[in-house]
């Protein structure tokens, strides 16, 4: 498994972590015994993605510094786990489940519809920069298929699940919620 693509561009704004982000990193590191701070890397990468929208090499270098590990130890992790977007995305990343059980109840049709409505195709951001449509594997919501999840700034970066989706609901969400 691997990330969809990996931007190697340096992003100077990502070199500085806000106090809030540093505090989150501190809390994550404190969960582990001394010397095992590397364990916090996934949680910190989530926080970084929430702060900047995606995970750049510049930010990963800073994470390596915080954890006193080599940059490659962060890159190899970030590129293994599919939730981390290693290049800029649309403002809302619609992670739509495409796996079997959801497919039985219309996941493929939903993905096509979302791409059509948002103009975000093949994992690339929509021309207006508002959306990326990212097909993902089973989200543990198979009984509420089809479904998707979105990371929302309003929820401090937590992911919100949207379940039992149909076209009118998607239209409403695009018009009113994901703005």
């Amino acid at each position: 498994m691997s990330a969809y693509s990996f931007s190697t561009e340096k992003v100077s704004e990502h070199a500085h972590f806000s106090d809030a982000l540093l505090e989150k990193a501190r809390v994550a590191i404190a969960k582990y015994p001394e010397g095992k701070q590397k364990s916090a890397v996934l949680e910190i990468l989530h926080d970084v993605q929430n702060e900047f929208g995606w995970v750049s090499v510049t930010a990963m270098d800073r994470v390596a510094e915080l954890l006193s590990i080599q940059p490659i130890e962060v890159y190899e992790v970030a590129s293994f786990y599919t939730m981390f977007n290693l290049e800029p995305t649309g403002k809302y990343v619609l992670e739509v489940c495409r796996t079997g059980p959801c497919q039985l109840r219309g996941a493929e049709e939903l993905i096509t519809y979302l791409e059509h409505k948002t103009g975000a195709h093949h994992g690339h951001p929509s021309p207006d920069g508002r959306f990326t449509v990212k097909p993902v594997e089973c989200l543990a919501a198979c009984g509420m298929a089809p479904c998707l999840q979105v990371r929302l700034k309003q929820l401090d970066g937590d992911y919100k699940y949207y379940e039992n989706l149909d076209e009118p609901t998607v239209d409403r969400l695009i018009a009113e919620e994901w703005i």
Partner: peptide, 11 residues
């Protein structure tokens, strides 16, 4: 007791 998150990987 602590909670640790994964990052998207069935394995």
């Amino acid at each position: 007791l602590f909670v640790a998150p994964g990052g998207g990987a069935y394995i």
